[in-house]
Amino acid sequence: MSFDKQLVALYTILRKGVVRILRIWPQTLLPSIVTSVLYFAVFGNILGSRIGNFNGVPYILFVVPGLVMLAVITNAYMDVATTFFVSKFFSRNIDEILVSPTPSLIIISGYILSGVVRGTAVGILVLLVSLFFALPSIAHPLVAILFLILSSLVFALAGLINGIYAKNFDGISIVPTFVLTPFVYLGGVFYSIKSLPPSWQTVSLFNPIFYIINGFRYGFLGTSDVSPLTCVAVLLGLMLVLLGANWYFIRTGLGLRQ
């Protein structure tokens, strides 16, 4: 398949994914916005006004980057995991692509980019919603954008692995519910690890999402619990591992060919 035809195939998969996101926006875009409004209202305004300044900034400004990243991570992950799983098991329309000459790398890229679009779009929407509660300043916009896109990419890659290996609906809900969400909450969405006892600070350092949230927070506040370079390194490391895993699936037919 020539390069220009591969681009058409990639565009087709991506377009289909984006059309789906927009078609079922009450499922794909709205929930994170509603949840964020509640978080901003409760943690930002009601509790935040009592907490006062946190790490030198009003508490709501501290939690905004974490809540944006929470939305980005879960949406990028769930978009790819769910779409791939449903295509594989229910409508079985993944066969439409598998019988075509579209290379596996393009198939994966299309699904991943769709997840990146949803993750990034929801992240931006949640950020816009936060403007109704606070006016976050962005100290390093490029750093924030870098983390927004890279985080979407990393968790879209992770979601694809989940989508490939899930055998039933439990398979795509277990990881987000019992792994992803706790890791995100314990990654410092609502607090700085400096507020934790030393032993828990050490434990937090093994949570990769801690670095993602802190890197993104650095983009906004200009300060974070760890060096932004360390955060970038962890994010790139995660991406390499997940790319490697996905490359393995490419080589073995995505686990879809019997």
């Binding site: 020539s2 035809k5 195939a9 998969i13 377009r15 289909k16 329309n93 439409e96 075509s100 579209t102």
Partner: peptide, 25 residues
């Protein structure tokens, strides 16, 4: 194929145009 396996929420024209896209059309 034997099983009906197009995306049931899509329209016939879109199903065909997408399929063409997978072939680079």
């Amino acid at each position: 194929g034997q099983e009906i396996n197009f995306d049931p929420f899509m329209k016939p024209r879109d199903i065909l145009v997408n399929q063409a896209g997978y072939y680079g059309i």
